[in-house]
Design a protein around this nucleic acid. Structure first.
Length: 487
RNA sequence: GCGCCGUUGGUGAAGUGGUUAACACGCUAGUUUGUGGCACUAGUAUGCGUGAGUUCGAUUCUCACACGACGCCCCA
């Protein structure tokens, strides 16, 4: 059997619906902020990332998907989105556009040759936004606020925004040197990883999990002390704008972005969700004023942000955010003989063109099996096409929730469905499951009522539960049976 | 690149160095029910990640590899 590639995932079914939903929210929010969608190639010249992201970064040195194509060109599968956007900005001379700054957003797959773990895959989907051509601290604040608002709109509640500033390139380099000098005499007392980091990535030592309690580290020089006046003013301005926009944040001097191109404002957004793995940063970004010129474009100040959609979806699921995802169909048509089947084909065509979600039987199941199928598909209405009724120009339609059945004229079927599905919409949010009955609300269950599930039985509240014994659990409560039940 | 644990049917899984790999769910068919959701009956892996080794014999022991989960490095 051919398997998917390591660290890659197939996304389908309910999960795919969540991804699509997240995409639509991104589009909606970005439209409000007046960002335009940009789509750049997944493959780029290898040199772009070496010059853009930096030769010392692991992403470029160890983790990139490099190859030569048949023409001998050095190609890399993009490991992140910003470099490609900047390349496109320069190549298409967007700096000459009438509307400045240029505000764009992207949403696509990135590739990193890494060992997979929770929240990290080889193929990842990132959404990101960039403002190119503005040095205004308001643009820094806008990027952060847009990110936070997006997460809020998706339904995430517990967010932690960490911000920091690296200062301009000059103070950044000065600080780096100072830090190395300070740590060097004591480096023996640090963990092995930190000893490695000293020359390669000294700023990372500040954020080391092992040496967090080390007194020497606690007294280490801070980036903020090395800022020149301009950098300090800019950082204060960013905070001021964030305050005005009522975006809560914390200043965390240990936030260090991995990519070489960052300067001034940097930030990370963590999702504080129980059960999240070690990688709980769902989005991060910062200012990169030097990148455009470094890639042969005009001196252009920029700020941007990127977010992993996979982590985002994981956070939404762990937080059990209620998402407006439809998992039911309007009508399931059943039939027994060939004439009825033909009529089903005709009727489906009519109803689908009229805008209803309609399905029927395709595998030759018995009528009994068709009823089961209708339930599996969460059909709101079912209809057994019966030759006799059809000859009378009538159809028997059943509300699958109330179990009420009516015989109506075929001429008014569309009108009937329209009317009754409208009613359905209103209490779609409400769940009517009771003891011993199937949950009507689908898998994202928030039953208020008690459910009784026994070993091996499907939990009546709709979640997958492997109770050892009967449990009486309500929505949001810990399951009394001790199993991993999310009743 | 490093570490730890794992890999048995559509699903959750039990299990053993030796004839037919438990149980449950699901699915399909049948009986019954005025057109299903209950009950009952039957069917549903020639197979235990892949390859090699040990052995008379391996799904069960050993090794390698692949993949999965988690953590480190690094990073969204």
């Amino acid at each position: 059997m051919i398997q998917r590639q390591k660290g890659c995932h197939d996304i389908y079914g309910r999960e795919a619906k969540i991804w699509k939903y997240v995409d639509t929210i991104i589009d909606t929010v970005m439209e409000k902020y007046n960002y335009t969608y940009i789509r750049t190639p997944i493959i780029e010249a290898t040199e772009l990332f070496h010059r853009g992201i930096g030769d010392t970064t692991d992403i470029v040195t160890k983790e990139s998907y490099d190859f030569q194509d048949k023409g001998g060109r050095d190609i890399t599968l993009r490991p992140e989105g910003t470099a490609g956007v900047v390349r496109s900005y320069i190549e298409n001379k967007m700096y000459g556009d009438a509307t400045q700054p240029v505000k764009v957003y992207y949403n696509g797959t990135m590739y990193r040759y890494e060992r997979p773990q929770s929240g990290r895959d080889r193929e990842l989907t990132q959404f990101g936004m960039e403002i190119l051509g503005s040095d205004d601290p308001l643009s820094d604040a806008e990027i952060i606020s847009a990110a936070v608002n997006l997460y809020k709109m998706l339904g995430l509640k517990e967010l932690k925004v960490n911000i920091n500033t690296l200062g301009d390139n000059e103070s950044r380099i000065r600080y780096r040197e100072e830090l190395i000098q300070y740590l060097k005499p004591h480096i023996k007392d640090f963990c092995e990883d930190c000893q490695e980091r000293l020359e390669k990535n000294p700023l990372r030592i500040l954020d080391c999990k092992v040496d967090q309690e080390n007194e020497i580290l606690k007294n280490a020089p801070k980036t903020l002390d090395f800022l020149n006046e301009e950098s300090r003013d800019r950082f204060e301005k960013v905070q001021e704008y964030l305050d005005i926009m009522q975006i809560p944040y914390e200043i965390n001097p240990n936030i260090v972005r991995g990519l070489d191109y960052y300067n001034h404002t940097v930030f990370e957004i963590e999702a504080k969700v129980e059960g999240f793995g070690a990688n709980n940063v769902i989005g991060a970004g910062g200012r990169y004023n030097g990148l455009v010129s470094q890639l042969d474009g005009p001196e252009t100040p920029c700020v941007g942000f990127a977010s992993g959609i996979g982590r985002l979806v994981m956070a939404l699921e762990l937080e059990k955010v209620k998402l407006p995802i439809t998992e039911n169909i309007d009508l399931f048509l059943m039939y027994v003989n060939e004439d009825e089947k033909k009529y089903a084909a005709y009727l489906m065509q009519e109803l689908r063109l009229a805008g209803f979600i309609v399905d029927t039987e395709y595998t030759g199941r018995s009528l009994k099996g068709q009823f089961k199928q209708a339930d599996r598909l969460n059909a709101k209405f079912t209809c057994v096409l019966n030759s006799e009724d059809l000859n009378n120009n009538e159809v028997k339609i059943k509300n699958n929730k109330t179990k009420e059945e009516e015989i109506i004229s075929l001429d008014v079927l569309i009108y009937y469905l329209d009317e009754h599905l409208g009613e359905e919409e209103e209490d779609m949010e409400e769940c009517h499951c009771k003891e011993g009955k199937e949950c009507t609300c689908g898998s994202n269950c928030n039953c208020e009522e008690e459910c009784h599930c026994k070993e091996g039985e499907e939990c009546t509240c709709g979640s997958d539960c492997n109770c050892e014994e009967e449990c009486h659990c309500k929505a949001g409560e810990e399951c009394t049976c001790g199993s991993n039940c999310t009743c």
